[in-house]
């Protein structure tokens, strides 16, 4: 029997504040339901990231946790995995620390892992909190939905391309993009978790690891997506109504 597909959930106790650990659950289950042996490896903060995993998942976290995580990852294990062609999916703080630089809790510029050509500083306006909707640049993924909750503005360099074009919400806060794609590294600001709300994205990542996949019945996910799309439309209509003022009398 083949070895199980190993999904490494990187430092969930510090990069798991916004439910993003669910991404590893989704990936593992979608393989198992197709009869492919798979397991999630929870990587503890006092351990190095295993280099022999097949797919690495990073989530969001608080500022101090983000710095702790990037300092641990400074041992180069994740960079070596990426060099070996492994796939990485990173969300929010997990996305920011893969870039060239980000801001730590004290607002100082901190070096990232340099796996994505991007730099993160602060959004000009208030924190970006709310539903985020976009169209993914990844083949076959289509519309992506989730919830963003961050204060970072991420500007991509020439080696990275946006993961999605934002239709509603803030995303990177730059050039109407959300997240980044650079080689085998895919990153986004979407929580929800992203892979529960967007099963096509989960399968796009899995295909990079195991090749073609049998279809699954995703009726419940599709129902959730339809409901979220409708909620965004409802919220827009409410905003328009609130902003509408009768024309001033002459």
């Amino acid at each position: 029997m083949a070895d199980p597909v190993r999904i490494a959930l990187v430092y969930p106790t510090v990069l798991g504040t916004y439910g993003d650990g669910g991404n590893a659950t989704v990936l593992t289950q979608r393989l198992r339901w197709r009869g492919i042996d798979a397991e999630t490896i929870d990587v503890g903060i006092d351990h190095s990231v295993p280099e022999q995993a097949d797919l690495y998942v990073l989530g969001g976290g608080e500022d101090s946790a983000q710095t702790l995580a990037v300092n641990r990852l400074g041992d180069g294990a994740l960079n070596r995995a990426v060099d070996a062609g492994k796939t990485v999916f990173a969300v929010c703080a997990g996305f920011q620390i893969l870039g060239e630089t980000f801001l730590d809790g004290a607002g100082a510029v901190h070096p990232g892992l340099g796996l994505i050509d991007c730099r993160t500083d602060r959004l000009d306006g208030p924190r970006a909190v709310g539903e985020l909707l976009g169209d993914s640049a990844l083949d076959g993924v289509g519309t992506v939905t989730g919830y963003e909750n961050h204060g970072g503005r991420t500007v991509l360099g020439p080696d990275a391309t946006p993961f999605a074009t934002v239709r509603s919400g803030i995303g990177n806060g730059d050039a109407a993009g959300d997240g980044a794609i650079q080689g085998n590294v895919v990153a986004t600001y979407l929580h929800g978790p992203a892979l529960a709300r967007n099963p096509e994205l989960a399968d796009a990542l899995l295909r990079r690891v195991v090749g073609e996949l049998d279809p699954l019945d995703d009726a419940e996910e599709l129902e959730l997506r339809r409901e979220r799309f409708a909620a965004i439309t409802r919220a827009k209509v409410t905003r328009w109504r609130r902003q509408w003022r009768p024309p001033a009398r002459q």
């Binding site: 916004y18 439910g19 993003d20 669910g22 919830y147 929800g192 978790p193 529960a196």
Partner: peptide, 9 residues
């Protein structure tokens, strides 16, 4: 809380 992502925690 507007975001039920915590269901996965």
């Amino acid at each position: 809380g507007r975001d039920p992502s915590w269901l996965w925690d």
